[in-house]
Design a protein around this nucleic acid. Sequence first.
DNA 1: AATGAATGAGGATTCATTCAT
DNA 2: AATGAATGAATCCTCATTCAT
Lengths: 205, 205, 205, 205
Amino acid sequence: MTRKLTERGRARRRQILDVAAGLFAERGYHPTSVADIVEALGVGKGVFYWYFESKEDLFLEILASSSQDLRRRQQSAIGDEPDPLRRIELGIRASLAWFREHRRLINLQQFAATEDRFAAALRQHDAVAIDDITRHLKEAMADGTVPAGQDPAMLAHALVGATRHLARTYLFTADEPVEVVADVAVRFVIGGLVAEEPPARRLSR
Amino acid sequence: MTRKLTERGRARRRQILDVAAGLFAERGYHPTSVADIVEALGVGKGVFYWYFESKEDLFLEILASSSQDLRRRQQSAIGDEPDPLRRIELGIRASLAWFREHRRLINLQQFAATEDRFAAALRQHDAVAIDDITRHLKEAMADGTVPAGQDPAMLAHALVGATRHLARTYLFTADEPVEVVADVAVRFVIGGLVAEEPPARRLSR
Amino acid sequence: MTRKLTERGRARRRQILDVAAGLFAERGYHPTSVADIVEALGVGKGVFYWYFESKEDLFLEILASSSQDLRRRQQSAIGDEPDPLRRIELGIRASLAWFREHRRLINLQQFAATEDRFAAALRQHDAVAIDDITRHLKEAMADGTVPAGQDPAMLAHALVGATRHLARTYLFTADEPVEVVADVAVRFVIGGLVAEEPPARRLSR
Amino acid sequence: MTRKLTERGRARRRQILDVAAGLFAERGYHPTSVADIVEALGVGKGVFYWYFESKEDLFLEILASSSQDLRRRQQSAIGDEPDPLRRIELGIRASLAWFREHRRLINLQQFAATEDRFAAALRQHDAVAIDDITRHLKEAMADGTVPAGQDPAMLAHALVGATRHLARTYLFTADEPVEVVADVAVRFVIGGLVAEEPPARRLSR
DNA sequence: AATGAATGAGGATTCATTCAT
DNA sequence: AATGAATGAATCCTCATTCAT
């Protein structure tokens, strides 16, 4: 079903992807009908099904491409920075900048987690991000910057959770400067990663 | 429109609430039809509308009552603990324990954020939780445990984000012991909260 | 199914009849549910079905009793007036007074005509009224007051149509004094009944 | 929401309008389901909603277009007749002819009056007809044919009531020749309009 | 490539009526 | 007599998808 498309065809396809992402993000996946999408584009319904197998398909593609786009942004920000913790910081800053620009997409990931048919795909994309971070963490543990003995994947998830939630909360509207949010996020996350066991330990039980 | 209910009526109402929460969490809100709910209960379709105004209404109620339940759990765990950071720790541990028991409900909050008509309600409930944490943080800032100068609400969101995401990832199945996740969460979060500016600062830019 | 009712039972029955007539007239038959009726009365649903076979049944009874009530009013107004045209006038005046008092019921007759299952009953009740009038007209034709040669039933319908429509239009709200409407109605109707052929004839074709 | 329709589309739309008008008139608005309508057409349920916003909408459109159609017929019958009373006669005759041809539609107007959401629209359409007649009457009063001193709008309503009721009663089936009914209607109405006050006056009180 | 038209299963909701207590 | 609870067919409407042109 993957069609060979002319230049114009590829443009139209991207156009559908964009408009749909916008509508999905704004209203939600289910409340947005294929009819809404094509109407927003001012074209007939046939157009949609010429370029996409199904609504579900389209959503999956938006999901995949946004994850890829975000990752590209992170990697280009990180470059060949040697310090693993610094790489994490750069990744967080890049992610927040990306979220601000594509704030509408945060909702899509959010939603994808709640329905089986999308959750699997989402998990895969997330795994890639978690892997990246885990790699940095292992290195940081090796050189002693981050105390060893904790599951790096778990730390990676804590990091991702904090970052995304901050993005969701403060970057959805354009009010808060990214810089401010990023500073808090970085300090919080790095602090959490390098934290020694004792103080927390002593408190518990 | 609030009906006078007999004992039996209240039981049935609760039953619907439970079954529906389960189905919503498992399959998602939209993929779960009212027909599915009543069928799972083995009753006629009218029963649903005897107890609830609409499907939307039911969802909203599930959302509200789960937030309240979680909060009750946190507060009873915190008791009258005087140390604010310790209160936060107890809150996190209580939350994770609650999430494990009600892991199905995590998805509902997740979903609620993606559709306008639910997002507003969700934000209100979240605000309560954030307020609680913010209060602890201000106290901790006052006594110097947590460095002042940062927006306590923002820190609260970072904390919540990390905690929830860990819950979502590791407590959804029963594989990971809550203790383990809680230890990581607490160490990460407390570490993040008490982190001094310098190291993060030096790294950035 | 006709129950033996206690005094209190008969009162409740009448109460239902009244409330239902009000709601039917105000909102229409279909938009008024049995639930609405019992709710307006503040009783349970069982009550309704204790006193009435069905919603349809209830409506039919309202229809019948209102026709009877109107007829009683007409007859008592007419008394033993010997002049047939004068009897018609008195009937019209009595009808309009009744319509003003029971203006809500005009709609019910109106509606009844539009559904088969009610139309038959309505026709029967109407036939009674038409018969009454027809009798007066025949008498008036016999004594020469009304020119003979026209179908008295047809004239009766013209009379009824004019009167009811005026009632519907001007008596539905309490603004217009009945007297004024009645004067116009009587003059118009009597004028129409006594009209000689020539002027109309000459004009047509 | 007004769609661009092809020739074929417009034909289908009209077809729905016709079939629905027939069913509504025959069985009533509520007893006729959208399913009935599309089934009568032998098409899928979606077709209906491709052409109409809702069942209510469709009904409103039928109402409006039938009023317009009737008015067109009246006006073309009246032409440029100078005598106002003669214009009224021609209007009545044209109306009755139209009612005979579209006898099914009488019921729709009848019904529309009984539910708020339709009554308003109906009143507007009726107002147009009443205005037309009122204009003729004022002219007739000016030239002395119709005695002045009465509210012309009220007379117009009496006229309309008599005419419509005769139509409803005698033209619903094809038994009665329109001519006969029209002759009675015209003689009755014109007689009612030109009636002098005295005789009626003397009788009353 | 694209359009308007059509499909029909599925969804939320209503409601007259019945029933157990 | 009366209540709250329950039934389930029926209703309006939506929507992903397909089709003829």
